[in-house]
Structure formats: C-alpha cells, structure tokens
Amino acid sequence: MKLRPATQHGLKGQRLAALFLLGALLFNYPLLQLFARGDMVFGVPLIYCYVFSAWAALIGLMALVVERGDSNG
C-alpha cells in the first residue's frame, strides 16, 4: 500500500481552497455592492471592470498555484 506524502499535495489543495474562499468573498454581496452603483471608469462600467478583472486575477492565481506547485511536487 503506497502511502502518499500528504505534504506536497496537501499544500496545493489548501491553497486552492483558500482561493475558493477568496472568490466567494470577492463575488458576493458586500464587495459586489461596492462596485455596483453604476459608475463608469475609463468609459467602462465599474462593475464590468471589477468583475472581469477580479475574475482574471483569480484565474491567474489558480494557474500559479497549480502550475508552480508541480515543480515542487
């Protein structure tokens, strides 16, 4: 029976779970409402800007965790 070393994979999973929580916070009521008042920035609606930027950033972080983790484990 092969015992899988929990540390390396555990860290990746935990980091991803943390990103999940971050996303849940970023894309829900309190923060979302902050940006949803119909203001414009650079001619683009603020909410549009915020959602897509935050989304892209979250994806970037997820990619970082998953791809860079490989080199360690």
């Binding site: 999973g13 779970a17 999940f20 996303g23 979250l58 997820m62």
Partner: peptide
C-alpha cells in the same frame, strides 16, 4: 459562470 470558476478551485479535492 463564476460558480464553476469557484468550483474549479475545489476540484483538487
């Protein structure tokens, strides 16, 4: 679409 993005983070588990 946000939902699946968040779920993707938990796919690891």
């Amino acid at each position: 679409y946000i939902g699946p993005t968040l779920m993707a983070a938990l796919w690891w588990y």
